[in-house]
Design a protein around this nucleic acid. Structure first.
Lengths: 234, 234
DNA sequence: GGCGGCTGTCACATATTTGTCACTAAAATG
DNA sequence: CATTTTAGTGACAAATATGTGACAGCCGCC
């Protein structure tokens, strides 16, 4: 079971730290943003599974950000939990109308936070795209969890599946081993860099049915790159 | 014309009794549930034509249950009337947004209840599919509560039946154990995840007559997937 | 009460995955 | 060409995940 990524959006660092501790105890992966702009960038880049959004932000109000996210097709399914201080109760209904999926009043217990978060995550289902990811003949369907090349089913382990998912949504771009560890293994893990090589190899092997064994290219001195081009330009 | 079945969901027995009396006077058949979990099971088993849903429930809020029902294709067409106490008016909008088909404020007269109920029933089509669910040779008839493969009758327990019902209406999609617990057991239940494995096994065993033992596939690291296709080719 | 079917859990058996190594192959470097 | 660095590869033991049989509690039914 891969751990979910939670994006914490709050302008006060201490608050973020507190949230991070609580969430990491519960085995969630955390990323943080101090303002709406950062938050937005991270949402596109890291695709978190849920956003913890403070009511008050320096640049744009939390409500406004929530509204934007819900309006954008790409992020509409992303669950949002609003945080607000006691006394701002009036805003509750407004917040919910805006599209927040739940609402927590500060102060709250870590347990409560995690419980609510779990509930929201569960009913929300995966925030990952429902559309199959493709590269040429290669198709990865996140819904059925299937990979195929042409009409051939491709079998691989969970880690290779995640790796391929990442590559398919970030094609034509070189990544270092460290970056791959961050994105695919989920950061904060103590794993040798060379381990990436091994998994790359396993993925290559899995994809090597038919002539299609050039999907993953080695970028010497850097890392790897996924590309649909299969022929070498000689 | 046989009388419609109404599912009453409320945690207070006196309220349920009251509603039952009113409805049976009007010649409806009633079944009752005191919490969301019971309600969920009854919906699959008894296939009511309409649900009377109290706003407040002990385990899950009524809104939450309603949202789940509307989200699941299998029960999306099932009409829901929300009951709420006076003063909870604020929730009205939210309740309707959630997908409730009508909304009644307590206290109300039996006559009003029946009138609204009739109205909702009139404009609603058949609540749950009358057609059998199928996958290849496998047929599940929700009306007669029978399962067969080819001309072989298949026998299984209630939980396996619900599980299969769910799978048949959500084929080709991988589900985690947690999701299955939510959808088949009815969420907010305290049940070990591994219990799912056991029921999967029981269902597999039941379906294993003839060569057809590949319906349920294991998605390693994730959960299970129902598919009529064999795992090998896509 | 006794019986039989269902359920949820366990403990144990299998199967698969994973991170590391040691070693080899291939590039760079000079 | 010799040397150094970097990547590919097969093997492996430990960690995880899943399959499976058994069992006790529960509930409805005789």
């Amino acid at each position: 079971m891969d751990s979910k990524t939670i994006l914490i959006v709050d302008d006060e660092a201490p608050v973020r730290d507190m949230l991070r501790v609580a969430l990491e105890m519960a085995d969630y992966r955390c990323i943080e943003a101090g303002n709406a702009q950062e938050a937005h960038a991270l949402i596109i880049d890291e695709r978190p599974d849920l956003v913890l959004l403070d009511w008050m932000l320096p640049d744009v109000s939390g409500v406004e950000l929530a509204r934007r996210l819900k309006r954008d097709e790409l992020t509409a399914a992303l669950p949002i939990i609003m945080l607000t201080a006691k006394g701002e109760e009036d805003h509750k209904i407004k917040g919910l109308e805006t599209g927040a999926d739940d609402y927590i009043t500060k102060p709250f217990s870590p347990r409560e936070l995690v419980a609510r978060l779990k509930a929201v995550l569960r009913r929300a289902g995966p925030a990952t795209p429902e559309e199959p990811l493709t590269a040429g003949e290669l198709v990865l369907d996140p819904v059925s969890h299937r990979v195929s090349i042409g009409d051939q089913a491709v079998d691989m382990g969970p880690t290779e599946f995640r790796l391929l998912t990442f590559f398919l949504s970030h094609q034509e771009r070189a990544y270092t081993r460290t970056q791959l560890l961050d994105h695919v293994w989920g950061g904060n893990v103590y794993v040798e860099e060379r381990t990436v090589d091994v998994h790359i190899r396993r993925l290559r092997k899995a994809l090597a049915i038919g002539g299609h064994d050039r999907f993953i290219q080695t970028v010497r001195g850097t890392g790897y790159r996924f590309s649909v081009q299969t022929a070498e330009k000689v």
